[in-house]
């Protein structure tokens, strides 16, 4: 009887400790993953304070774009996020996800102009793999972009190997890029060469952007 009792206690303790430590580690675990939020989300820290984890946005998304964090996502448990490679955000005109949010975690103000949405910014992250940069006429990311010719433009260079052909380089303009991830989703490579990254809109970046505009301006005058 004592032995049985011991076994019972051991088994119960084991079960409870296993599940609870799993949950605890999951909750407290440091995660360096970047979570891309639905359109109109507040800046990340404010978003985490304001989102009450009601999952209404996830339920409202007609494309199943939004996924819901679980305990394994630590403090992001219950918050919505997007995995662009699985399903990008199609930027529904009426933004159902934003409309249902009871708090201001998804800001209703972004409804005014859908072009101002900044989930992130697309970047060509693998220049060696990008088909267009290898001189192949891929340009899928350019064609699928809902902000075509504003968020992505094609810039022409001479193709260095043959010195006869042209490289059509997709260039992303972050003021227009909505970070919808349609390009990342569409890239035909196994690992997308174009990736949505968190928007960086610091002062320095602004500075270089200004320079770039100045150069463009001057070029324009020359012509």
């Amino acid at each position: 009887m004592e032995r049985r009792d011991f076994l019972k206690k051991g088994l119960a303790t084991g079960l409870v400790t296993c599940t609870s430590s799993f949950s605890l580690f999951a909750l407290l675990g440091q995660d360096n993953k970047t979570y891309f939020r639905p359109p109109g989300a507040l800046p990340e820290n404010e978003f985490l304070s304001a989102c009450i984890r009601c999952a209404k946005c996830v339920q409202a998304c007609p494309y199943d774009t939004l996924k819901l964090g679980s305990v394994t996502d630590g403090k992001n448990a219950g918050t919505p996020f997007i995995n662009f490679r699985e399903k990008p955000c199609y930027l529904c005109e009426d933004l159902p996800c934003v409309k249902v949010c009871p708090t201001d975690a998804l800001d209703i103000k972004s409804l005014v102009n859908i072009d101002l949405v900044h989930i992130g910014t697309a970047v060509i992250t693998d220049r060696e793999a990008c088909l267009s940069l290898n001189g192949i006429r891929c340009e899928i990311c350019y064609r699928v972009c809902p902000m075509i010719d504003r968020a992505i433009t094609l810039e022409k260079h001479e193709q260095e190997i043959t010195q006869k052909h042209t490289v059509f380089e997709p260039v992303i303009h972050k003021d227009y890029c909505t970070g919808c991830g349609i390009c990342e989703n569409a890239c035909p490579l196994d690992e997308s060469a174009i990736t949505v990254l968190p928007s960086q809109r610091g002062d320095k970046a602004k500075h270089y952007q200004y320079l770039r505009e100045q150069v463009k301006h001057k070029k324009g005058h020359k012509k």
Binding site: L27, N45, L48, S49, C51, I52, R53, C54, A55, L68, S70, V71, K75, A77, G78
Partner: peptide, 17 residues
């Protein structure tokens, strides 16, 4: 912590989610 602490770990939330 500026986080809705209970909502992050709420079993009521988890089950209904």
């Amino acid at each position: 912590t500026s986080k809705p602490i209970f909502e992050i770990v709420s079993p009521i939330g988890f089950v209904s989610q």
